[in-house]
Amino acid sequence: MNEQFIQQTIEQFRSKILMSVRHRTLRIHAGEPDLREDRLFFLLLPYLNGEHWNDEHEQSAISVAVIYSALAAHDQIKELNASSKSQQLTVLAGDYYSGLYYQMLARLSNIDLIRSLSNGIIDISEKKASVYDNVKQSFEKWMETIQTIESLSIEQFHEHFEFVGYHSFVRRGLLIRRLENELELVKLGKSSRFQESLAESENEYDFSHPWLVLLNRELANEKIKMMEDISQSHLLSHAVRQFLVDLYNLRLNEQVSVMRER
């Protein structure tokens, strides 16, 4: 297995998911479902790393990817004035994908996984709602909050099939991507509810530094830890390691420069 094979496998997986959820009207008006490469990679990680993988694993992995598409669709709904046809159908796209993920797992008669994943969606919805609920908490708690939002469903899938050894890569990887996205928004002069919540928590929780500094630091630290995890891991194959390094633009010299800054 090499990096090219990993890339091809992810693309084939994406095609299978698209086939499972295809709906002409939704595609035209709500767009394709959100199937981010890093999430697909982490879902497939045990397989890509040579673990035993059968049809049930694959079908279940598809249903978890569909959950992410469902939740991502609802994240696209505007807080106010969502009455355009495109927004209306995006609401329904999310509901449709939710129904499909349940149907896929019901067909597999995997009731335990339905329970575990729905439990996770409860947690994720609660965490997403926290930015609208005037919640103020420490910076570390906010990091845990976004980590749950980003990675819980994949972790539950891995846990169900006893692939827990991959958890730390999933948690760290998806946190890094979220932090990068948040910082990209800042660069573009935009904000998010999450950033507003961080700013509101800053005074009350007496953050050691302004939230933006902490966010940058967290990203740098997580990248270093990811690099360490990758280099020390006996679990990951060479191809998977290299793919992860490329996926997150991890460079050894980056690690060194960040450490010097600190």
Binding site: A70, L71, H74, D75, I77, K78, E79, L80, A82, V91, G94, D95, S98, I121, I122, S125, E126, K128, A129, Y132
Partner: peptide, 11 residues
């Protein structure tokens, strides 16, 4: 708002 309605429904 709409987003809270989305999360409430999902929950």
């Amino acid at each position: 708002n709409n987003r809270v309605a989305m999360y409430t429904g999902d929950f």
